[in-house]
């Protein structure tokens, strides 16, 4: 393994999003504050409690997961796509880094941006609503696993994308609906039976459910099965991403 190379490349990925903090860290915080103020305060008083938890608290795990997912996914997808479009990816391909090392670097960059955003949202939620975190370590595990999963999915998007529109389209038509239908703003118990069954096929539902258990100690499904599903998704996406990257799919001729 090229240890120095791998650390340097992962460091580059982290350095990139940290230096672009007003595009990569600030927007998530801003929308979280808006969601909490508008949904939590204005709507929350009419919805009341879900499973004995104030609505304002209930939505925070969903908001945190939404930020983890979109940030992790956009980081690896746009970083890889820029390197492809501006052709400086060649500077990486000529080095002794393996496809697996580069793929993992992209995924780790996405994961870290996701986790940082998730943690920030949780802190903002705690500050604005007085929420207490029930199981901090469990929360961190969920943030990391989900951040990893979407770092890997973002890598797949970045490999596949031939234009920025491709990336936007995949984020808008694929990830955003799954996030919203995954129970960010409601419990699936509130859905009609048919849609409740459909929701059970949405992997993001389990991720949000898992974080909700970690933060608030309430769950629609056991947290362990949520974690298992997240880990399986992370593994599959990583394997596929690393394989495609190693083969040079849409990267090397």
């Amino acid at each position: 393994m090229n240890r120095v190379g791998f650390i340097t490349f992962t460091g580059r990925e982290v350095h990139r999003f940290l230096s672009l903090y007003n595009q990569t860290l600030v927007p998530g915080l801003l929308t979280t504050v808006l969601y909490i103020v508008v949904f939590g305060n204005a709507l929350g008083s009419r919805i009341g409690e879900i499973k004995d938890v104030a609505y304002m608290h209930y939505i925070i795990p969903g908001l945190a997961m939404m930020n983890v997912i979109t940030n992790a996914g956009s980081n690896s997808s746009s970083s890889l796509f820029q390197a492809k479009m501006l052709k400086f990816i060649d500077d990486i391909l000529i080095t002794p880094l393996s496809g697996m090392e580069v793929a993992t670097g992209y995924i780790l960059g996405g994961m870290l941006r996701g986790v940082i955003n998730g943690v920030l949202v949780i802190f903002v939620g705690m500050a604005l609503t007085g929420m207490q975190v029930a199981h901090p370590l469990e929360a961190l595990v969920f943030l990391i696993v989900v951040g990893w999963t979407f770092g890997a999915i973002g890598l797949l998007i970045g490999i596949y994308a031939k234009s920025f529109d491709n990336i936007q389209m995949l984020m808008n038509f694929f990830i955003t609906p799954l996030v919203f239908l995954g129970g960010v703003f409601y419990s699936i118990d509130m859905l009609p039976p048919f849609w409740r069954q459909v929701s059970l096929f949405n992997p993001l539902y389990y991720m949000i459910n898992g974080l909700r258990h970690a933060l608030l100690d309430i769950a629609d499904t056991p947290a362990a099965s949520s974690l298992l599903i997240s880990v399986i998704m992370a593994g599959l996406a990583t394997l596929l991403g690393a394989t495609l990257f190693t083969r040079g799919y849409r990267i090397k001729e």
Binding site: N2, R3, V4, G5, I7, T8, G11, R12, P96, L97
Partner: peptide
């Protein structure tokens, strides 16, 4: 420095 790192140069 990044390029050096990719080649494993400390």
């Amino acid at each position: 420095q990044q390029q050096a790192g990719y080649y494993g140069v400390p």
